[in-house]
Nucleic acid binder design. Structure first.
Length: 548
DNA sequence: AAAAGTTTCAACCGCGGACAT
DNA sequence: GATGTCCGCGGTTGAAACTTT
């Protein structure tokens, strides 16, 4: 089953020897240098029940530790390391078997946000769980998130981490700053969010949610408060909106708090938005498929996969060389918005694709502190103003200052409500199509990989989804691929999507479309612009007059 | 039904720290 | 202080299991 290497810590034994868990007490092997003195090589590979019994019996008699003595005293042809591993991971009592519970999963996420890849230390907080289990779980989770282009850390975790950092009273305060290697170290590639950067320091942890929450609350709250329209009870649509801009829910949640009073179904709304964890009672899955992405930096949609469970072969293939790790831009989702017609593979890493894209080019557009989506928006606006946006800031920076929220802030709906997601992913895609036009449907893997049904606009009736007016409002008047790839300033403005009097149902969509980047600039009606909305935007998003 | 592709997870590997000599 | 040994940790591997085509 397992490979056998002649040069290994625990050297192989001959096949005939492997058939027996017991072996002559050659006494030749021990510890890190087994097979000393010419003793028979040690067995490797899966343990047999007989071997297990021998090891258990030995530990019962002698206790744990001194693992090298196992082989000597029992004749078990296993090296000490192998014995320790087998005992720790499978034989020792009180081991929990089976899938992680949602609570355990959340704890792991939280622990990892604090500790990084300190599996053993994390295991200490999870009775009955082994470091190996946790490690495997995390790696699986990473892959899953990677495939989906979703962040790893939910915002709730970030918030809690931030609070703990501020209070200095973390339950598992390991007293260390997370290094950039936590995720990179194992060759992880996170295409859309660099958790490693994000969790680089505790300051970042506290920074992210604050910015995003404030910004988005300002950005959306006023609009919601002023026009809590019929869409409020369109849970499905809200969910879709949340899906379109995953992670938004966390901050939108705050913005919506003032709106809840108007809603007769706030609970439903919250649930639809994924504000609550939906734990499947019968879920044996370890999937923590994040619905949310980071408002700031996540490409939950753009990068790839709406559905965490279904679909999309395309993005699954969008893995990059490990060298991408440090280059992965938290805000790289904007790549899609800048060059919507790019092929996904081109979008992945322009610096890889284009040797001419020099670091200077990156820094030129670099945001001094990538605080996320909105800040990226600002930065792009500034870049435009300064005329430096000739080379779109597809990645804002490789600067050492990383963003917290860019990377890992995920909405708290980082939950297990996959069923809901799958039910609505199609409609969600549909919803997005009018905004993205061909640019996304043709150029982004996720969309192209989705079922064509998702793009049947007729599938969603106005009765069931107030998207109708939104579609109309957002019906592209600009043909993608017409050659004009330059952003249209008026459409870069967030308020361009907060129309004053049209398509209440599309309000959220518009905001999302705006937040998703200036991709929409080629496909949105300029007439949607409402200066009054803009004036209420955070100062950071006030654009220069030349773009008004 | 079978092949191909993907995911899971048990186990191996190398490294480094702690301790003994 | 130098060397050797033990132990634990984190990263990696690859077969089994599972899913998709």
């Amino acid at each position: 089953m397992y490979r056998v290497k002649s040069e290994s810590t625990c050297e192989m034994m001959h096949q005939d020897q492997m058939d027996s868990p017991l072996a002559d007490d050659g006494g030749g092997s021990s510890g890190g240098s087994p097979h000393r003195g010419g003793g028979p090589p040690l067995k490797k590979g899966p343990w047999t029940s007989a071997e297990d019994a021998i090891l258990v019996d030995y530990v019962k008699k002698h206790g744990e530790g001194n693992w090298n003595a196992v082989q000597k005293n029992t004749g078990l042809f296993r090296c000490g390391k192998s014995c320790r591993l087998r005992w720790a991971n499978h034989l020792r009592p009180n081991l929990k078997k089976g899938a992680f519970t949602p609570e355990e999963e959340r704890l792991i996420i939280q622990l990892h946000s604090k500790m990084g890849n300190k599996w053993a230390r994390m295991a200490a907080h999870l009775p009955g769980r082994t470091d190996n289990e946790i490690k495997n779980y995390w790696n699986t989770r990473i892959k899953r998130c990677q495939r989906a282009g979703l962040p790893v850390y939910p915002a709730s975790v970030i918030n809690q981490s931030a609070n703990e950092d501020q209070q200095g009273s973390s339950d598992f305060n390991c007293g260390e700053n997370l290094s950039n290697n936590h995720l990179n170290g194992n060759g992880l590639y996170l295409p859309d969010f660099t958790c490693d950067n994000f969790i680089a320091n505790s300051e970042a942890l506290s920074y992210a949610p604050q910015l995003s929450a404030v910004s988005i609350s300002n950005l959306l709250g006023q609009s919601f408060a002023s026009k809590r329209c019929g869409f409020m009870d369109q849970a499905g649509m809200l969910k879709q909106s949340d899906s379109l801009l995953p992670g938004l829910s966390d901050t939108v949640n705050g913005a919506l708090s003032s709106v809840d009073q108007f809603s007769n179904d706030s609970g439903k709304l919250r649930q639809a938005l994924g504000f609550d964890y939906l734990h499947e009672a019968n879920s044996s899955s370890k999937i923590l498929a994040p619905f949310g992405g980071a408002l700031t930096g996540s490409h939950a949609y753009l990068n790839g996969t709406f559905s965490a469970s279904r679909s999309t072969n395309g993005p699954l293939k969008m893995e990059l060389p490990s060298l991408q790790d440090t280059e992965s831009d938290p805000n790289s989702w904007l790549k899609y918005t800048v060059a919507p017609t790019m092929h996904p593979t081109e979008l992945v890493d322009p610096y890889l694709q284009s040797p001419t894209a020099t670091p200077s080019a990156k820094s030129e557009c670099a945001s001094p502190r990538n605080s996320g989506l909105l800040e990226e928006l600002l930065h792009q606006a500034e870049a435009l103003r300064s005329g430096k946006n000739q080379q779109p800031s597809v990645r804002s920076s490789s600067s050492s200052v990383s963003t917290p929220c860019d990377t890992t802030v995920v909405s708290p709906d980082f939950d297990l409500c996959q069923e809901y997601w799958e039910e609505h992913s199609g409609a969600m895609l549909h919803e997005y199509v009018p905004f993205s036009g061909n640019s996304l449907t043709e150029s982004t893997a996720p969309v192209s990989a989705a079922s064509p049904d998702a793009f049947q606009l007729s599938k969603i009736s106005p009765e069931s989804n107030s998207l109708g007016s939104g579609e109309q409002a957002m019906e592209p008047t600009y043909e993608p691929g017409a050659g004009d790839a330059s952003p249209r300033p008026e459409n870069l403005r967030p308020d361009a999507f907060f129309s004053g009097n049209t398509a209440d149902s599309s309000l959220f969509n518009n905001a999302i479309a705006m937040l998703l980047g200036n991709d929409m600039n080629t496909e949105c009606k300029p007439g949607l612009f409402d200066p009054s909305s803009w004036s209420n935007m955070p100062h950071a998003f006030q654009m220069s007059e030349e773009f008004k």
